[in-house]
Nucleic acid binder design. Structure first.
Lengths: 233, 233
DNA sequence: GTCTATATTATGATAGAC
DNA sequence: GTCTATCATAATATAGAC
């Protein structure tokens, strides 16, 4: 994250104008990272731009200078978070080119769970955004959620034809999946009290992945429709 | 809700002191109902006591008079919401005395889903409370969550012995169940955009109940351990 | 781009009349 | 118990020097 010695120093094209730009980009990123944390922990209303600035180690007017307003900061955080998820999703998909759909779906769903565990902010932010209608929600849905859902729905349909996935409307099933997989992370404090263990521990996470995938993937009842009902294990 | 003509008028024991008490209780309830809505929609920090008072149709100092502080109001809302759920749960359980455990579990879980649909505030509040450690969370867990989880866990274990329920740790499975069943309600705005249909419509709700129960209940693979592997259908 | 200083508003909470 | 009036604080946002 810290890039204090940029290569521009060698180039010698007016470091007086070049270096500050890098510094500015850096403070923008520091603010964004701090905002991600603050928004996820305290919600949009509960987070103050002053607290964000303090956490980022900068003066508070800088957040409005870089992001126009608190709302602008919120939008930037949402875009960055959703974008980060979509980036890893797309590159993962690209890497799985040629793999059969059932396996692809299984791996992508597992990635989703592990991403959720590593980025607990992710679903807290998405939850806040998805509760009530808003302009930002429309943008978020059109830019990220709908493309993601479309891709996964196609995979689910393929897996259903192969008899390897629970029956039902794919989009509906995705909400069941998302809910089932993320609840222990968004209720982390309660989970800790009830079960005594952190939902983020490695052991718990492996069990969680197995349990979630086990709920939705069925070991091929070999439906009469599909041609290749390949089964794992 | 509106009880403007109480029977005390006949009794004639100083209506000057009796009637005001009823009115006070009524405003307390109006404030509580408004607070439930405001807290669920905007979160603890996002809801203002002034907005609560305005929604309740009373002056703002009255909320602090009746609930001591904003925190006190929050606690009262949590207690009322969790208490309402537990009341219907306990009375339902009492009504099912003598019914076999698998059926009992199935009915109680269905009730949970329908309660969640009818009280969308419920999980939004619980989500907020369960995110971070706090004194209120401890109280909530000890008073409501733990008793509920203990009862359900026992039923799940019985259903598992009968081969009618997915394998796994009962408490862990409950979080999967809660997440799977409630996500479409807490993400109502996003669901509406993605699927085009409200998750609260009667048709959607019935499909949802069937899908959720179908995920967790298995049609008795007749495990060798248990004695009576009774199967439904 | 970054700082100090400040305008403006909203909020939680209370005092005091009725 | 309910109202009006007000205090104290914290927050968003901006102006202006450097």
């Amino acid at each position: 994250m810290i890039k204090s010695e940029p290569a521009e120093a060698l180039e010698y094209t007016s470091p007086a104008t070049r270096r500050p730009q890098a510094r500015a980009r850096e403070t923008g990123e520091k603010i964004l990272a701090a905002a991600l944390k603050e928004f996820a922990e305290h919600g949009f209303a509960g987070a103050s731009t002053r607290a964000v600035a303090a956490a980022a180690g900068v003066q508070h007017p800088l957040v409005n200078y870089h992001f126009k307003s608190k709302e602008g900061l919120w939008r930037a955080v949402l875009e960055a978070t959703a974008g980060q998820f979509m980036d890893q999703f797309q590159s993962r998909l690209a890497g799985l080119r040629g793999v059969d759909d059932v396996t692809k779906l299984r791996l992508v769903q597992e990635d989703f769970i592990r991403f959720s565990a590593e980025n607990p902010h992710f679903h807290l932010l998405m939850s806040q955004a998805g509760q009530h209608p808003s302009k930002q929600l429309n943008a978020l849905v059109n830019e990220f959620v709908r493309p993601y859902f479309t891709t996964i729905s196609a995979l689910i349909r393929a897996a259903q034809r192969a008899g390897s996935y629970v029956e039902g409307d794919p989009e509906h099933l995705q909400y069941l999946f998302i809910g089932a997989t993320t609840r222990i992370f968004t209720l982390a404090a309660e989970v800790k009290l009830i079960t005594g263990a952190s939902p983020f521990s490695a052991a718990m996470l492996d069990r969680h992945v197995a349990a979630c995938l086990g709920l939705f993937f069925r070991t091929s009842t070999a439906k009469p429709t599909g041609a290749n009902s390949r089964r794992k294990t």
